[in-house]
Design a protein around this nucleic acid. Structure first.
Length: 479
RNA sequence: GCAGGCGUAGCUCAGUUGGUUAGAGCGCCGGAUUGUGGAUCCGGAGGUCGUUGGUUCGAACCCAUCCGCCUGUACCA
């Protein structure tokens, strides 16, 4: 067949912004989620799960129109022509769930859940169109005691994940305080308000000078592209910068709430290095109604390319008193936060706080003789090992070339290969090959004949002692 | 979205002013070796040179286009 006439096969490829996950990452995420869950359960939260799809209008903000039905979210029409969307966070579906079951749910409703969410937008390094969030919310709790509790739970979660005190900080602000700032500078236009809030949010990225530019005319980035500013005058800009520097704005409700949150967390024993008031925290712009909080990692991590990366915020949330009201018309105050699981996992992995190799590779029982009796014996050995709680498998590849079996075991990182040919069987023995020790011993062997002859790190043991002898070898490599 | 950079084998990259059949290292597969991983030696597979169109006698190379990746920025529920 000529090359030009190759059948037109589909290309094996992933949609942009999506990834496959492999064993190490999956186990690491599961371990992380187990720790997070433990904290939430301890705080008295219960799980709830909602589907990946919702009716688009239930998700709220992004209603598809005929021109751009998938702007921001992935949407499609059901066979009854109703718009469905993949959820883009876990909060809107929770609000829908609560509104739908409001007569059966006992408030305050304390709940957590983890799952994938989807965003139809430009992906970047560490930023995907499908990623995992882990949320906790208290619904039907009007007081800032609930917000303070969320902050404490965030801090506890970070420490449960092995992040040391001082390597993270929960920063708290209040949307009402920011509203007070708007009032003080006389900004009423919604668009301009948002521009000012976004500028404040950039404090840790660009510093006060950068924020000043964004509050005023605008700022030019490293590529020479220009970002238009909020258009404040010098006096307004200074008022905002003063606020950001001092955190003070003449007394309003928000300031009092923040003071109360601070008193609550200090009373519970949390230090300033764990939870702290920070005037530059902004979070979701048209969403939160009161306290807002986020958790930032403070350590530098080195990525695969050897570059230093600041991870910044890995969790965030706040009070959203209006979300359930969208459905029911009655105000149901709620507060909660979301952990970016995938992102946090990447940070922990690069920081060396994540063990991605916690599961040892299995013991491989090799196939020497291929008659039914022998295969049955090999399978029995595998079962004996499994019964003793040892991961074990029969070699399932083509057994004709014995060397391939050891190569397979070696490449998988197995510690032990079990070998029994006719000679061993006649003597009631099995050979146990310690592949890890063998690799060491092989360093001094240059000649293949010697290599084969010596059979490094291989012992013959009575077949009856198989499990005990394997355990002995494995014990050396534990931990 | 905007600005800039970059697309050659699975990976990292060479590839002359535009000139025959596009190369290397590593990796992969096979053999030396049907009862032993590694090392060594020998052999092999693998490319629409990101796409499509244009300029040219001739394009991996020049131009346009779209797609993808990277950096910055914007948006971020």
């Amino acid at each position: 067949m000529s090359k030009k006439q190759k059948p037109n096969r589909p290309k094996a490829r992933l949609p942009r912004g999506f990834v496959d996950r492999e064993a190490g990452d999956i186990r690491a995420v599961e371990a992380m989620c187990a720790k997070i869950k433990q904290v939430y359960e301890l705080y008295g939260f219960d799980p709830v799960e909602t589907p990946l799809f919702e009716y688009t209008d239930a998700l709220g903000k992004f209603l598809p129109d005929s021109d751009r039905p998938n702007e921001g979210v992935f949407s499609l029409t059901d066979d009854d022509d109703q718009w469905l969307s993949l959820r883009y966070d876990l909060t809107a579906p929770l609000a829908r769930h609560v509104a739908q079951n409001i007569n059966d749910i006992h408030m305050p409703y304390r709940t957590y859940r983890a799952g994938y969410v989807f965003r139809n937008e430009k992906p970047g390094p560490g930023r995907f169109r499908q990623f995992m969030q882990f949320d906790a919310d208290t619904v039907g709790a009007p007081n800032v005691t609930a917000d303070a509790e969320m902050c404490m739970m965030m801090a506890d979660t970070m420490e449960a994940l092995g992040i040391n005190r001082g390597d993270y900080v929960v920063r708290v602000n209040n949307r009402k305080v920011l509203d007070g700032v708007m009032e003080a500078i006389g900004v009423e236009d919604v668009g301009q308000k948002l521009a000012v809030l976004r500028a404040i949010d950039k404090l840790d990225k660009f510093g006060p000078e950068g924020v000043a530019l964004l509050l005023g005319e605008g700022r030019k980035d490293e590529s020479g592209d220009f970002t238009k500013g909020a258009g404040l005058n010098a006096e307004q800009t200074n008022t905002v910068l003063d606020y950001v520097a001092s955190g003070k704005i003449e007394g309003n409700e928000g300031t009092e709430e923040l003071a109360l949150i601070e008193a609550l967390v200090r009373g519970a024993g949390y230090e300033d290095m764990q939870i702290r008031i920070d005037p530059s925290v902004v979070r979701g712009l048209e969403y939160y109604t009161g306290p807002v909080y986020e958790c930032e990692l403070l350590f530098d991590v080195t990525n695969e390319k050897g570059e230093t990366v600041q991870f910044g915020s890995v969790a965030g949330g706040g009070r959203y008193d209006g979300l359930v009201e969208r459905f029911t018309g009655q105000t149901v105050p709620a507060t909660g936060f979301s952990i970016g699981v995938s992102r946090l996992m990447t940070a922990l992995k690069n920081f060396g706080k994540l063990d991605t190799q916690s599961v040892p590779a299995p013991v491989v029982v090799c196939v020497m003789d291929r008659d039914a009796d022998s295969l049955g014996r090999y399978q029995r050995m595998v079962q004996q090992l499994r019964s003793a709680g040892i991961r074990a498998e029969l070699y399932q590849g083509n057994p004709k070339q014995f060397g391939k079996q050891l190569q397979y075991a070696d490449r998988r990182g197995c510690a032990v290969a079990v070998i029994q040919g006719g000679d061993e069987r006649a003597a009631g023995q099995v050979q146990l090959k310690d592949l890890i020790a063998g690799r060491e011993a092989a360093k001094d062997i240059a000649d293949r004949a010697d290599w084969v002859e010596q059979r490094p790190a291989q012992v013959s043991v009575p077949e009856a002692d198989l499990v005990a002898e394997v355990e002995k070898i494995l014990a050396q490599y534990e931990g």
